[in-house]
Write a protein that binds this DNA or RNA. Sequence first.
RNA 1: UGGGGCGUAGCCAAGCGGUAAGGCAGCGGACUUUGGAUCCGCCAUCCGUAGGUUCGAAUCCUACCGCCCCAGCCA
Length: 565
Amino acid sequence: MDTQTTPPSPRSDFIRDIVAADLREGRHETVVTRFPPEPNGYLHIGHAKSICLNFGIADEFGGRCHLRFDDTNPVKEEQEYIDSIMTDVRWLGFDWGEHLYYASDYFEQLYEWALHLIREGKAYVDDLSAEEIRAHRGTLTEPGTPSPWRDRSVEENLDLFDRMRAGEFENGARVLRAKIDMASPNINFRDPVMYRILHVAHPRTGDAWCIYPSYDFAHGQSDAIEGITHSICTLEFQDHRPLYDWFIENLPVPAVPHQYEFARLNLTHTVLSKRVLLKLVNEGHVRGWSDPRMPTLSGIRRRGFPAEGLRDFAGMIGVARADSVVEIEMLEHAVRDVLNRTALRRFGVLDPVKVVIENYPEDTVEHMEVVNNPEDESAGTRTVPFARELWIERDDFMEDPPKKFFRLAPGREVRLRSAYFITCTHVVKDADGRITEIRCTYDPETRGGNAPDGRKVKATLHWLSAAHAVPAEVRLYDHLFASPNPGSGGSDLFEDLNPQSEVVLASCFVEPSLAEVPVGQTVQFERLGYFCPDPDSAPGAPVFNRTLTLKDTWAKLQAQGRQDA
RNA sequence: UGGGGCGUAGCCAAGCGGUAAGGCAGCGGACUUUGGAUCCGCCAUCCGUAGGUUCGAAUCCUACCGCCCCAGCCA
């Protein structure tokens, strides 16, 4: 559930400026955008940027945004991806209403338009093989040479194209090409392929077709059919814009959409290439597409990131045309910001060590009232059982503490959150010298966590009654790739995988109320971080994923070797 | 040595001829029953470089440098 306390300030960027001007100056009455995924994989956080842009603009300017599947290549596309994409867009918080479309809905119209270009002498059937076409295309610095089939008669082209559709030819035997300019410095103008033969069943049209339009021949016309006003895509399509416009100008389309390009998202410590993500899954480096370390929206969701955090992030990074790599800390900040306001606080002990309170009665259990969220009074309080034997975090005790270690140590008094002040008297160790028990006394006057005499402690610890704590598995997640720019400098991406990206702790404890937290809800384990139940949880065997740690200045000091500074 | 883009702080990013917003990160400090959160302060004499125009340039002009994209019957 999302709560809106800090709506991201409506950001202005060059695309929103264009939309605003077009509306102001009457070029359009309402803005219509579209998010056009190809259903050949799972959506990732890069797509989230585009989704937030397209749906965001529609929302802000009172227009609408279509969800359109760009399903022109049945070789790669599957219904499974269509379903997951719709789930992910909805989860992100956007609604396309009844405006769900498929490029495949337009196949018949596109075919008619192809015929139109043939009749105009602006398209022809080419018998060249793929290799031959490539050879004829020329290079970046040399013009191409025309295909020997370039000047076929309109009648012959019509006949051949009709037979292509009828299935008379093998895959790759012929293609339909636009007849533009084999010498153009823009390679996209060197007679681009409009249709190819693919004897492959399509997830939506089945085997109704064996010729399929290319992206270039489908995208702009689909935009025109839907009345898209601003067709927003990423930078690598810039060189296609003249071709996009060429088809629109040369076809009797019902509207004139325009394409605008922005820089795609890059994030440190992660990779957003479909090829690499697929390899991570196929080679078993992760637990599948929805692994909590994956940058996929399904992975991010399983990790416990709230959709609102992603939307805020999209607003923070802006939209521009300069290639950039956003530090993942920005995403983490956006997520922490939401979670800090919304997440319920709970107690969990990841690396337990026993505390025995020597002057606390053996058979007593108290139910301490604990605040659910200090940032949100309406979240109320809960009750946590307290008794003589407790679990605390092993890290929260040091026998010989450095100067800046404020937690428990021999002779030192600290507060157990919402419970009592305790003072360590001594420790018990096993034969290997490992601490097995920390013996303490408590001050009955400090119930709730305050001393009537006003004395202070320097630390507050989380704790769990050993008799009541629920065993749990906790999976600690960190960046999938160790270096900020994996694979840069020609290094092998997979060498860069962070071996610590998932650390499974099998023997943790959580407070009893955590048994009721549903998958999808992220809570804060006080002083540790944000965690959420994983779908792998079983009755009586909960599994929690660490979404993010809390910021930790002590850990930072340790990392810097400044504990004694 | 073709074409298309882009260069403002460690990162993202405003700025559109009148003298460098904001956020992230970082650093100090205050406060704190989460070493969390919050709060306060610091962090670009300078906008890829060099010239030019102008009373005045990150914004205009010229040249140069650097980076990205394009030679799929992928999108």
